[in-house]
Design a protein around this nucleic acid. Structure first.
Lengths: 199, 199
DNA sequence: CGAAAATTTGACATGACTCAACTGGAGTGG
DNA sequence: CCACTCCAGTTGAGTCATGTCAAATTTTCG
């Protein structure tokens, strides 16, 4: 049960959960290992599960109208991730959920998640709260995407994902903040040339 | 209680609610009228309440880095709206929630909402589900904002808010899709000139 | 009817993209 | 341990989508 410690601990940051309740919860989750570049589910399949990252990094992405990769989200340790639209409606997915490194996750299916909400009401509270917070984060990011210049969006990324900035290839950061890899490179060299500190 | 019918009916589209339960729920809501241009709460105050629109239209907006208005969301009849970040944390608000017409709403405070979740668990389910759906909508919109040209975003707006397209001033649509009012005007005349149908 | 607001239009400016060439590491196999 | 390849990153020239500013026009509404 060692591997579930992180999960329990993370949930307990938001709602109370007795040891007995934790024992009820654990069997609902399955552990899975993904190799670098491996996907959580095949292209176009239904996202049956939501993943809780134990170690490694996952990334959700899709091609845009011009055929470029656009990254919706990164998920390092103790983040939840899936194709939410596919997961909540159990319809074919539009997004790829892909490991950027060898990654360990815990999985729970939508069906089991809804069962769990019946058995442990505070789990529904937990997911309601993290969904509310995620919604706020997307609102802010949309505001940035529409109103802030690319350099500001890069700074915001560096603040939000400090552990990833020097860990993942830069082109994926570009695809997250919504600029071409070339332009991100130019912005960075501009920062250096001006001798400015980023934050 | 006539005025609460729309609320009950809207909730019943997602979760079951007996007549007795509906009677429990109603007293938690207060009715309020807003005049055109009136705000739901003063600039910078805490968003104590979330609003359910009975009639009229509300709009959530803020100034971006360059001092332009950016519209996050419109809420016509039977939509929920507030400054979510302020509402869930009960911290001072960054966004303005403003009536675009004379508008009737039902309000419930965060405190009462959380109480209600204890009394009627399916209400928590209801809000979890609509929050999940809102999150998916923001993910799609972010993907559009980053990857799709302005004309596509305008078309998407017309599909999402068909009742608003010819009801609200065009400059607010521009501030929602993230372009200048001038550029939206130019796109529209381009569509006409080309004789193309929008959808 | 008249004033204020919204929209349109045009000339010009610019941030960000494309394409192509080049540089530099990281891994691999001989 | 070298040579080769492959990907990521950099740089530059040219282009395009969208923004800015200002003026003209239309619509809204008191």
């Amino acid at each position: 049960m060692k591997e579930n410690d992180l999960l329990i601990q993370t949930i307990r940051q938001r709602v109370s959960l007795s040891n007995d309740e934790a024992q009820i919860l654990c069997p609902f989750f399955r552990r899975k290992s993904l190799n670098k570049k491996e996907k959580l589910f095949p292209n176009g399949a239904v996202a049956h599960d939501v993943a809780f990252v134990l170690d490694g990094v996952l990334r959700v992405w899709a091609y845009d109208a011009e055929g470029h990769e656009r990254t919706l989200q990164f998920a390092p340790t103790d983040w939840w991730i899936t194709d939410l639209a596919s997961f909540i409606k159990q319809t074919p997915s539009d997004w790829h959920v892909e490991a950027m490194e060898n990654t360990e996750v815990l999985l729970i299916s939508r069906e089991d998640q809804l069962k769990l909400f019946e058995i442990l009401p505070q789990l529904q509270t937990y997911f309601r709260v993290i969904t509310e917070n995620a919604l706020v984060a997307y609102q802010q990011r949309l505001q940035e995407a529409m109103g802030a210049p690319a350099l500001e969006r890069y700074k915001a990324f560096c603040l939000k994902y400090p552990t990833l900035v020097d860990r993942i290839p830069q082109k994926y950061i570009a695809s997250y903040i919504g600029v071409s890899p070339e332009f991100l490179s130019k912005m960075k060299s501009e920062i250096l040339r001006a001798g400015k500190k980023l934050i």
